[in-house]
Write a protein that binds this DNA or RNA. Sequence first.
DNA 1: CGGGTTTGTCCGGGGGGTGGACAAACCGCA
DNA 2: TGCGGTTTGTCCACCCCCCGGACAAACCCG
Lengths: 332, 332
Amino acid sequence: MSRSELVARTGLTRSAIGALIGELARVGLVVERRAISDGSPGRPSPVASVVADQNVAIAVEVLVDCVGVAAIGLGGTVLYSTRLDRPRGRVSVDETIHDIVAGVTQVKGKLSPSCRILGVGVGVVGLVRRPDNSVPIAPNLGWHDVAFGDQLRLALGGTDVVALANDADVAALAEVRRGAAVGVDDVVCIWGEVGVGGGLVSRGEMITGAAGFAGEVGHMPVNPDGRLCQCGSIGCWETEIGEGALLRLTGRPNPSMVVLGGLFGRAHPFIAGQLNDEIARRALHSSMANLRVVPSRLGMDAVLMGAAELAFEAVLSDPLATLREVEARRTG
Amino acid sequence: MSRSELVARTGLTRSAIGALIGELARVGLVVERRAISDGSPGRPSPVASVVADQNVAIAVEVLVDCVGVAAIGLGGTVLYSTRLDRPRGRVSVDETIHDIVAGVTQVKGKLSPSCRILGVGVGVVGLVRRPDNSVPIAPNLGWHDVAFGDQLRLALGGTDVVALANDADVAALAEVRRGAAVGVDDVVCIWGEVGVGGGLVSRGEMITGAAGFAGEVGHMPVNPDGRLCQCGSIGCWETEIGEGALLRLTGRPNPSMVVLGGLFGRAHPFIAGQLNDEIARRALHSSMANLRVVPSRLGMDAVLMGAAELAFEAVLSDPLATLREVEARRTG
DNA sequence: CGGGTTTGTCCGGGGGGTGGACAAACCGCA
DNA sequence: TGCGGTTTGTCCACCCCCCGGACAAACCCG
């Protein structure tokens, strides 16, 4: 993006943009290439771009049947990724951490030595309490009250900051930042693979609720006469999924876009027509009939991309301070 | 609150607090009283307090069976209020606006001439689209696509800024700011009178969703085999209320506190025991069993208080600019 | 090669905060 | 009444970040 474009988008002055870009370039987050003349009159504006291959996040996804690890450059370019399928049953905390450490070691080996690691982001199939990076419960993994973030951080050597979140939450984040919902403020993501997960984004920010449980649509009760769910409740969506509960959810008055991922994303072409009919019928009002239901654009990569986004959050909000901290942690 | 207390709470320096308080005092939002010595050593700190009776909001609530109007001072003190009961059927837009104008005229007459009106806040039983202050649909009033905010503003003379929101949303706001949920970040309010309304607050801010429909729990589908609701959906909570749906809702993994108002608030003493048992049984995890369900503290006043809070929002976020604008609108 | 246009850079200025020095207002004690 | 000890308000120099104008640089076109 050229400097003049930045001026137009941010509303800041040329002076301010110049100073900011200069500072970011000084610490190696950004490079400026000489402007290429586009034929229009006036002095051409130099193009600033992110140094993606020197500023990366380690992204981790912990699903039921696989563990994925990737190095993702600032801006969302996947530099290298690996995936370890694992037989059902190999889901204990220790085994999972072991597999992650192996994947991270492999991925780090592929990176150039000059490359900076800005953080480790993890998306996990389970409920996550953000303040302490712990997993109170992950039904599909059989985990209860695990200090997963801390354990992983130590297992990785303790030099990198680890940020943990629910897999559907980070997938939603990825779709909003770089996927099907770019520019949309209020989004619900429905992620269905083994279980049913959901992520909420309101006004561009992730909503997790007090205990990190918001958006856990899989355990929203939809049928009072339904079957007992493993979460202890009755008639959860996750257990009643055969009954067309997806349609009921989209009938709820919240988002301006619903992104479907996983199984639902792949099924989208076959159910889109019926879905839209149902939305039109159930919408409380015509302004809700504009609700768009779209398939995920990032597909399988969404969770890893979102995990990276999670790790980048600190750099984006305060680049200089975060880089200082990263450097401090690296040297000891 | 004393200046030294402000320094401790905000983390700002004494200089900054002094300058800010001085400026607010200069424009008449705040007065400083000489400090009263409390016996402890050291120079006593002057106490700053809000000039509530000279800086008021006109708060309006539009319910099914009544229209309420109040003058509420900055900080939440009710200076004067009036309520107009109305027979069922007198709910048209024109009649409602007529009743409000009458109420506002009466309330304004009771205020001293020196008193500043900072804005008009309205809580209405219906869905509200925030950007344009319109009401897409209000089933219990029979309204469809009404530019209610604009109509009311013009009917009131056009000199005051009018802010509109859903009644349950503003009630939630009031409970968080000055009621049962002070200091709690993530709150769901359930308001049941004629219909069932809900307000969401996450991280201290009102969540309305893209179309202003978030938190409309009354129309959340809870029974796939239920009755047809007037909103066009099937098995809405509002229509299935007899089936214990409240318990199901509190089983949903979102807030750290649920505030019950209206009918539910009055019923709270009788159902508290059963409610807590059910929460403990349905909670996904023990951290959710800490969920507190409490009755509204503000009761009947919650909607009016919240409407005032809505009107005060601009002054609180940028006092000087808002006061300049208020003055500009008043003089022409 | 010279005007028109768009842009980067330099520089003075202002708003809003920090932080230290100093004075003011209280306490307790002699 | 006077004197330290303590807490606080006030003044002032300073810094950071941004604005906005003046100027130069780099492009177009004729």
